[in-house]
């Protein structure tokens, strides 16, 4: 489903990844670990095609970085959910409206939007917060809303970039458990984290990035 073939992507600062080759199959849960600045975010951005590789080829589902046209990238992104350390929610919109955004982008009808968002909020256990603004929620709850926004479009894969970076241990554990639950239903997860202890004994595949080199 996701394939990296000798992929290099470097920034002027020297950060990035070099000659990365690996595959991620459907339904896998992969933890990408490494220190800050190692290239974890670069790797996720390459999958999201927010940046394109300097060398090599990234393939996600039927989309290939060497052939994809700019206007087709939006179609790829509809199949890939993103979760960030900083939540990236719209503070002037309710939880419901934040989660509904990807469905509106896909042109889903209003009735179906309502149904799917309510199902999603139920599944994540935050349906009682549907009319709250993000600023009225705890950090953990905000991250769950962010997860809901990624999940509601039924993606092939969710890319989580340090999703627990701003959370206390209990909230972090809750987010990891939710990601695992989503993964059990068939959605692949790629989670970048520098908190190895949080994920080490949970039976997931690990990839380590050190100075741009991807191992595992």
């Amino acid at each position: 489903m996701i394939s990296f073939k000798d992929v290099s992507s470097k920034f002027d600062s020297g950060a990035g990844i070099e000659h990365a080759t690996f595959d991620v199959g459907p339904g896998e849960f992969v933890c990408i670990i490494g220190p800050t600045g190692a290239g974890k975010t670069t790797l996720l951005r390459l999958i999201h095609m927010d940046i394109l590789p300097d060398d090599g080829k990234v393939t996600v589902d039927k989309f290939s970085s060497d052939k994809i046209k700019r206007r087709k990238i939006s179609l790829l992104r509809r199949k890939v959910g993103m979760v960030f350390q900083e939540f990236e929610l719209l503070n002037d919109r309710t939880v419901f409206d934040n989660v509904a955004i990807p469905l509106h982008v896909q042109g889903v009808g209003m009735k179906a939007v309502k149904e799917e968002v309510e199902n999603c909020l139920d599944r994540l256990g935050i349906s009682d917060k549907r009319d709250h603004l993000p600023s009225e929620l705890s950090g953990g709850e905000q991250q769950i809303v962010s997860l809901g926004r990624a999940l509601v479009k039924d993606p092939l894969v969710i890319l989580a970039d340090e999703p627990t970076g701003n959370l206390d241990p209990a909230a972090s554990l809750r987010v990891i458990e939710l990601l695992e639950e989503i993964n059990r239903d068939g959605t692949a997860i790629l989670m970048a984290t520098h908190n190895y202890s949080l994920v080490k004994d949970r039976g997931h595949r690990f990839m380590q990035i050190v100075d741009g080199e991807v191992r595992g």
Binding site: S74, L75, L76, R77, R78, M82, E88, L90, V105
Partner: peptide
């Protein structure tokens, strides 16, 4: 700009 970034993130076309 926050909304624009999020829209692009979730797959909105330029036209959208």
């Amino acid at each position: 700009r926050d909304l624009i970034r999020i829209l692009k993130l979730v797959g909105a076309t330029d036209r959208f």
